[in-house]
Design a protein around this nucleic acid. Structure first.
Length: 843
RNA sequence: GCCCGGGUGGCGGAAUCGGUAUACGCGGCAGACUUAAAAUCUGCUGGUCGGAAGAUCGUGCGGGUUCAAGUCCCGCCCCGGGUACCA
């Protein structure tokens, strides 16, 4: 028999599988469908990272397993090829981004193919190909025509280094996600998608999905729904009103001042009233010069300036209160203005302390001396100033605070009643929740406010001032305004005669050919929108295109989508929770409303892959020099070993350090499997019984089947190693057992199992059906009985698995060691756990 | 600050309806084979004490519940990830 040589057998089978079209999915097939959705990679110049094949192998194991269970599997690969890094790299090496992207794709494809992933390559797609981005543009137009895409002049996040605007989601701690440079606010005319129309549905839809809780929570937090009230404060001696949003209308009586965001439009409108305009202007300039990072960052002192000459009136008690501007209030959230309740809000409290503004308490604890106030302090922020607790625990029951009582020694277990707080007029004595409701009713009656909901989620800013993306299919005509490009003229192709170097002007503006165009409406001269779309637009619908990749009259075929979606499994990195999932779900819902698809949730089941760290347990990076190159690993060990090693490292979702040395374990295992072939007999020679390994074989089939379904690949592999250790000890293996062994190993190590299968089969192993285990053979007939005295293990016996509790107790008590230890002791109690142990409690 | 994970041998990790802690693998030690090395095979491998039998401690720390706790409860510490003047 030949040596195990992965370099020879792996490319051979990859080619033969492809020739046989073994992985082609058939839309409408009578077999049950299974859509195994893979994160399509961004093909970087650096090539494949060892992290990529982790999630991909997990998906491939699943895809192969599902096929062997008779499912019609859709499993594809594509390229998320537009994007800034490619453009920047192209500028650096003096090439066209298109060229760079194609090179990168070719390299990625070569690398991925080495792993033997069972993709249906006939459905391969590339977002930067005109045949794809034509439809990205078409979808943009559908959203535009249905008022889900719009243009707006607004302050946006601008990255000076990347020379483009960014979506809110791409700003991390005030810095650009890509280049980590500070992001500034800049007012610009930009395109947005109305994702906020779907905020509630995006929130509610999460419940029915098979996602882990952390992912669901991430989505919910990102949407950030806040329920409260919107109300107006009158401005003294003026018709103007200041509109605020609050989640705590119950604290209205405690509002002792107001704060506007520095950019708030009211400030300009009331310029004439304001006596300290120079000071205001100064502050506004300072604020606008601060980067988002400086402004948002951490525990810095709050600053602000009072708008002198301008006074607001608290509608609850008609008290005159001052109005300030301060950059701790964001123009983009709520109404850009707040009523400040320093007694019950940490930020307002800090500000009021600093500028000596009045603090008025309106909420205190209930009159209930049984409360341990210590319990309240944690998480409620009650502290020394009166924080803003809403609820706390009393006797395991959540109870509301009421408007009414005040204690000292907050934060201590002991506390004494200081008196009552009666600052809320007719609402005194109510619990918080009741007060919220009643005050909103009062606001509605007075016509100065109403219940309102605010979201953290913003509309999705999709225009970018760079080249390597899908051009926005809009023509700007002086006479007609925005005119959509007629659908027959799609795609709007990216021009080649452009200056790629970022100057602040979008590169497309430098192309004469691209810019000058006739208005489709009036025929007059017009110019194209010279911006491109965020690459997240491309990646938010690729899973639909896989269903009908060659459709020429539409982005996807509705029936095909109805057959395949939702995806039955989607393995993605946890870092995509906020952006990709949110956008893709929004697209799906919007498309459903446009009657393009019939489903509203695209991803039924999502699981995550963790990060593979360097051998030093640090993130792999060039600068640390701890990057592992998959080409070299495959060269040394082969794809099957690498696939199995990545699955054996630990739970899929955990981050875990790479160890090339540890790969030896897998390599030895596969060598053993290879050599085992010579023990296989059609007719077992009489001398050696097969019963020596059958129990563990059937236990292994059971465990591997369960573990694949639960995606516990590491323990499935452990169990197969236990089986191989058992087989190592026997002389002969029956042919039908050997076939089952190859089948269960196949999803993990497809090449070696295909090679060994073909020793005496002509079929492909994946077309065979998944083996069933025999429950009787897998069952243990003997177990080890553990005998404990006072919980400590003292003796062990081999006993029949079905021994009764009585028998177990008898065996335990009669044990040589145990009976000696029991000498002279009083037996208090005997606990028998059938099939496991006996614990004797003595005194 | 808030939200989510997670702390188990020298290392990656098993075991969570409470029931033998450390499966499987790496590494290490000893032996076999070999002129030798590699590869392979066999055995051992949590700490401490002990020649051994065995005893005893042991899943981040401190308490608790239980016949029995890595697992449940309370209070902390540390690490990783996400997120933030969100009113």
């Amino acid at each position: 028999m030949k040596e195990y040589n992965p370099k020879e057998i792996e490319p051979k089978w990859q080619e033969r599988w492809e020739d046989a079209k073994l992985h082609v999915a058939k839309t409408g097939d009578a077999n049950e469908k299974f859509y195994s959705l893979e994160t399509f990679p961004y093909p970087s110049a650096a090539g494949l990272h060892v992290g990529h094949p982790e999630g991909y192998t997990a998906e491939d194991i699943n895809a192969r397993y599902q096929r062997m269970n008779g499912k019609n599997v859709l499993y594809c690969m594509g390229w998320d090829a537009f994007g800034l890094p490619t453009e920047n790299y192209a500028i650096k090496v003096g090439k066209n981004p298109k060229e760079v992207a194609l090179d990168n794709i070719a390299n990625f494809k070569r690398q991925l193919q080495m792993f033997g992933f069972s993709y249906d390559w006939d459905r391969e797609l590339n977002t930067s190909d005109p045949s794809y981005y034509k439809w990205t543009q078409w979808l943009f137009l559908q959203l535009y025509k249905n008022d889900l895409a719009y243009r707006k002049h607004a302050p946006v996040n601008w990255c000076e280094s990347c020379k483009t605007v960014l979506a809110r989601e791409q700003v991390i701690e005030g810095a650009c996600e890509r280049c980590k440079n500070n992001v500034a606010q800049k007012p610009m005319e930009q395109w947005f998608f109305r994702i906020t129309n779907y905020a509630d549905e995006l929130l509610d839809g999460i419940e029915g999905l098979d996602w882990i809780d952390a992912t669901k929570e991430g989505q919910k937090n990102w949407i950030g729904k806040s329920i409260g009230a919107e109300l107006e404060f009158a401005i003294k001696d003026d018709n103007g009103k200041i509109k605020v949003f609050t989640t705590r209308p119950d604290t209205l009586f405690g509002a002792t001042y107001m704060v506007l965001a520095p950019e708030h439009e009211l400030v300009d409108q009331l310029k004439d009233q304001i006596s300290n305009w120079d000071e205001i202007e100064n502050y506004r300039n300072e604020a606008s010069n601060k980067t988002e990072m400086e402004r948002v960052h951490l525990d810095k002192e709050k600053t602000g300036v009072e708008l002198k000459g301008m006074v607001a009136i608290n509608p609850a008690n008609n008290k005159e209160i001052p109005v300030w501007i301060a950059d701790y209030v964001m123009v983009s959230y709520g109404t850009g203005a707040i009523m400040a309740v320093p007694a019950h809000d940490r930020r307002d409290f800090d500000f009021a302390q600093y500028y000596n503004l009045p603090i008025k308490e309106v909420i205190a604890l209930p009159d209930d001396s049984s409360i341990n106030i210590k319990q309240i302090t944690r998480g409620s922020g009650i502290g020394n100033w009166v924080g803003h607790p809403i609820e706390y625990q009393v006797s395991d029951k959540k109870t509301d605070m009421i408007l009414g009582w005040k204690y000292d020694n907050i934060g201590q277990t002991c506390h004494t009643l200081l008196g009552t707080i009666k600052n809320s007029g007719e609402f005194d004595g109510m619990k918080v929740e009741e007060a919220k409701e009643k005050i909103i009713q009062w606001l509605e009656k007075e016509k100065i406010g109403k219940a309102a909901t605010t979201y953290r989620l913003r509309d999705w800013l999709v225009s970018r001032q760079r080249y390597w993306g899908a051009p926005i299919p809009i023509i700007w005509c002086e006479k007609c305004g925005d005119v959509p490009v007629p659908e027959k003229d799609l795609p709007v192709l990216l021009p080649d005669d452009v200056d790629f170097n970022p100057t602040g002007e979008p590169p497309l503006a430098s192309s004469k050919e691209f810019q000058n165009v006739d208005c489709p409406k009036c025929g007059g001269s017009a110019r194209r929108d010279y911006e491109t779309m965020d690459t997240f637009v491309d990646s938010s619908w690729y899973f639909l295109r896989y269903c009908s990749p060659n459709e020429e009259s539409a982005p996807f075929n509705k029936e095909d989508v109805a057959y395949w979606l939702p995806a039955d499994l989607y393995v993605i990195g946890a870092e995509h929770i906020a952006l990709h999932l949110l956008y893709a779900r929004f697209f799906c819902k919007a498309f459903a409303d446009l009657k393009l698809v019939d489903i509203r949730e695209p991803f039924q089941k999502i699981r995550h892959q963790g990060m593979i760290m360097g051998e030093d347990n640090q993130k792999m990076s060039k600068s640390r020099g701890n990057v592992v190159n998959p080409d070299e690993v495959i060269e040394k060990y082969g794809a099957d070993t690498m696939r199995m090693y990545e699955m054996f490292m630990g739970p899929l979702a955990d981050s875990k350090p790479w160890s090339t040395d540890s790969m030896k374990g897998i390599s030895r295992f596969l060598e053993k499997i290879w050599k085992m072939q010579k023990k296989v007999f059609v007719v077992i020679p009489a001398k050696a019984g097969i019963q020596d390994y059958q129990k563990v074989l059937h236990q292994t089939i059971k465990k591997v089947t369960e573990d694949i379904q639960a995606m516990h690949h590491n323990t499935a592999i452990s169990q197969m190693m236990i089986l191989s250790n058992a087989l190592h000890k026997v002389e002969n293996i029956a042919k039908e057992d050997w076939e089952m062994i190859l089948k269960i190993l196949h999803p993990f190590a497809p090449h070696i199992t295909e090679e060994l299968w073909h020793v005496d089969h002509d079929s492909f192993i994946m077309t065979e059906s998944w083996p069933e285990y025999d429950e009787k053979l897998a069952a243990e007939d003997e177990i080890e009985l553990v005998v404990q005295i006072n919980g400590k293990v003292r003796e062990r016996h081999q006993v029949p698995a079905d021994a009764s509790e009585k028998d177990l107790e008898k065996i335990a008590m009669e044990g040589k060691k145990v009976s000696a230890l029991l000498e002279g002791k009083e037996i208090v109690k005997v606990i028998v756990v059938k099939g496991k142990l006996v614990n004797i409690v003595v005194r």
